[in-house]
């Protein structure tokens, strides 16, 4: 059964502990479950910021070095919050299921629109909201500060060594 994912971004889909391969069809992304009709299925939509991992500083340092002072490595996402949503439904190949994702955090607690909604089909979602991850937000700021400090220090050191070599010649 194909489960279509609208506006997925960097959310990954798991089923029975296995990550499902994301396919594309006519500009739409979808995953396929390997269950037979009538079987209950639980999909887990998971999103965590890269810097929320343990030893994040080692990870960031490694890619900072590999990416030549971080200039040639992709930027870390500005959106630090986590999503861990479960979707329960019954496998039915006749009725396609479509989920739509929204990417914002309801910090006010006033808005009622969840981050994961089913557009077509029938499914029950659990925890369809982003969870605040202020640690990742703080870590990204620390990374940016240290990255620019490192760049300035390293470039200054290179310039100083170059000047010294030229003068000594």
């Amino acid at each position: 059964m194909k489960v279509y994912l609208i506006n997925r971004a960097d959310i990954q889909v798991f089923c029975d502990g296995k990550r499902l391969r994301i396919n594309r069809e006519g500009g739409k992304e979808y995953v396929e479950t390997d269950k037979t009709d009538g079987q209950p299925v639980t999909l887990r939509f998971l999103r965590k910021h890269e810097l929320s991992r343990p030893f994040w500083w080692l990870y960031a340092l490694l890619f900072w070095v590999l990416g030549v002072m971080g200039f040639f490595t992709p930027r870390y996402s500005k959106f630090p919050h986590s999503l861990d949503c479960l979707a329960h439904f019954t496998e039915n190949k006749q009725v396609p299921l479509q989920f739509r994702f929204a990417h914002y955090l309801d910090e006010t607690g006033q808005r009622t629109v969840p981050s994961v909604t089913e557009l077509t089909g029938n499914a029950q979602t659990e925890n369809p909201r982003y969870i605040p991850n202020n640690a990742a937000k703080r870590r990204r700021k620390i990374y940016l500060f240290c990255s620019w400090l490192g760049r300035i220090l390293l470039l200054t050191a290179i310039a100083a060594v170059t000047i010294k070599i030229i003068v000594e010649r």
Binding site: F14, L46, K48, E50, L66, G67, F72, P74
Partner: peptide, 25 residues
């Protein structure tokens, strides 16, 4: 599951970095 997610993120980042370094080369 989280472990797999982190591993995939690291692989994606490695790919992105190598791609940029490829263009630098």
């Amino acid at each position: 599951m989280e472990k797999e997610l982190y591993r995939m993120q690291a692989e994606n980042r490695l790919c992105g970095t190598l791609l940029r370094l490829g263009w630098l080369v």
